[in-house]
Write a protein that binds this DNA or RNA. Structure first.
Length: 499
DNA sequence: AAAAAAC
């Protein structure tokens, strides 16, 4: 069996790996590290959770260590592009971890936080820059960043980047890169548009594939519970009353849905926070940090967190809404059962979602066992649920607003409702600082206030499939978080003397 | 259709 020591990685990299307790590479690492170390281009098909980040971070650190040189002013030697801010942060943390015994500078830039600190961080150049496309373009247009000296390009989650409409930004970015460079592409799936992009940008790439598309993670026990829309919240509240569920990720289909679920949980005194694209960056960071450090056991998320968010010891994933894209289901449940742990994925399915369920089962080529309601749970009738929803609409919110009333014309610009502060002028900045001032708890987090006015009447529809009810299997105990959970603060890798 | 992403 291959060990990390077999690759001939630079000693400081090996030392960091050893300290982290990593001995043998995952399949993607086993295939990707050697060619990437040699400077080959790479096209990797791998889902998150396969050890993809280390698969490119380790050889990149090795190559930097082999050819130490000072980055040019406002330039970077390695550019890593990520579709979401959280993933960008995480990639940068990984570089910091694996590179802790090297003296490279590593910074991350993304939107939603003040730009001036990022500009300062780039002024003297950095070795490794992790970025989301929008802020990257912004920095380039401001002449705070140049890509003329990039030696290695990494495109992470390429398929999601394209889904999110980053193709134009991507093309502009790649045009600015030197022709002579190493390019590493990673994608969970390889649809035609990604394949042609790879064709265009990669030179004689090594193809690496480790997981067939839409393979659900092993060790994730899956089940589906049929519940009409009005019963879902009560069902969730009931399930989460079990204190054995220590860290649970709840997925909703919409941003409003996420906020609504959080409010529903809070009504029964279950502390939860939401993470989605309408939240300010500080709110997003607070929510994720509180979830990671255990001060908040329930994180309600849109698909922003479906990919790439690597939180240890997520014991349960609950699909409050089924995703209409089967791949999304795979990514979501892949958030649990990570690092050798077991996990349980429970999906709520209403009449309208039964079609999605069939799609998911077809794509993953497996039937998801149907579970009945948990013991002691009786769902509200559709009528009751509709009445409750109506009452909820009439009930004034604590801030004096009625649910459904908009905060302003552009609710997303001031998601937390902090008067007088735009989202770009608070928080700790996007660069890789020591994390000073990052609140450890979500306690002070502003409550979501974007409400919605959509009536909650149940749209009835003929129930197509009759699914057999099965007894609920034994639930896995939530694994205890290892160490601090949050990990150490992201730090600058202080530039030491160069050899 | 919704998701995220720059200001």
């Amino acid at each position: 069996m291959t060990q990390f020591t077999d690759f001939g990685l630079a000693q400081p990299v090996l030392r960091a790996l050893e300290e982290a307790g990593y001995k043998s590479p995952t399949p993607i690492q086993a295939q990707a590290i050697a060619p990437a170390m040699q400077g080959r281009d790479l096209c990797g098909i791998a889902q998150t959770g396969t050890g993809k980040t280390a698969a490119f971070a380790l050889p990149i650190l090795h190559r930097l260590a082999e050819t130490p040189r000072r980055p040019i002013r406002r330039g970077c030697r390695v550019l890593v592009l990520s579709p979401t801010r959280e993933l960008a942060n995480q990639i940068a943390e990984n570089f910091s971890d694996y590179g802790k015994y090297l003296s490279f500078t590593n910074t991350v830039v993304f939107g939603g936080v003040t730009i001036s600190r990022q500009e300062k961080a780039l002024a003297n150049g950095v070795d490794i820059l992790v970025a989301t496309p929008g802020r990257l373009m912004d920095l380039i247009e401001r002449r705070s960043l140049t890509l003329e000296a990039v030696e290695i390009l990494v495109l992470d989650e390429a398929d999601q980047m394209l889904d999110l409409g980053f193709i134009h930004a991507l093309k502009r970015i790649v045009k600015m890169l030197p022709k002579e460079r190493q390019s590493l592409f990673f994608s969970a799936t390889m649809p035609k548009n990604i394949a042609s992009l790879a064709d265009q940008y990669l030179r004689d790439p090594v193809q690496v594939a480790v997981t067939p598309v839409a393979t659900t993670a092993e060790r994730v026990t899956q089940e589906v519970i049929f519940a009409h829309t009005g019963a879902k919240q009560a069902l969730l509240n009931h399930i989460l009353r079990d204190p054995a569920i220590e860290r649970v990720l709840v997925f909703t289909r919409t941003k409003h849905g996420a906020d609504r679920v959080v409010r529903g949980l809070e009504k029964v005194s279950i502390n939860a926070s939401a993470i989605h694209g309408n939240k300010s960056q500080p709110q997003r960071e607070r929510a994720l940090a509180a979830f990671k450090d255990g001060s908040c056991r329930v994180l309600v998320a849109t698909d922003i967190a479906a990919r790439g968010i690597d939180v240890e010891a997520v014991s349960h994933v609950i699909n409050y809404d089924l995703p209409n894209v089967p791949e999304s289901y795979v990514h979501r449940i892949g958030r649990t059962a990570r690092a050798g742990a077991n996990g349980l994925a429970i999906s709520f399915c209403n009449d309208e979602e039964k079609a999605y369920l069939r799609d998911i089962e077809r794509t993953t080529r497996q039937k998801i066992p149907v579970a009945g309601f948990p013991e002691g749970f009786s769902p509200p009738s559709r009528q009751e649920a509709a009445d409750n929803a109506q009452a909820e609409e009439r009930r004034p919110a604590p801030n004096g607003q009625r649910p459904g009333q908009r905060q302003g014309q552009r609710p997303s610009s001031r998601p937390g409702g902090r008067p007088g502060q735009g989202r770009g002028f608070e928080g700790r900045g996007g660069e890789n600082r020591g994390g000073a001032g990052r609140p450890a708890r979500a306690d002070g987090a502003p409550r979501p206030q974007e409400n919605r006015g959509e009536p909650r009447g149940e749209r009835r529809q003929a129930a197509p499939a009759e699914h057999r009810s099965e007894p609920r299997g034994e639930r896995p105990r939530a694994p205890r978080p290892q160490g601090s959970g949050e990990g150490r603060a992201i730090g600058w890798l202080d530039r030491g003397p160069r050899s």
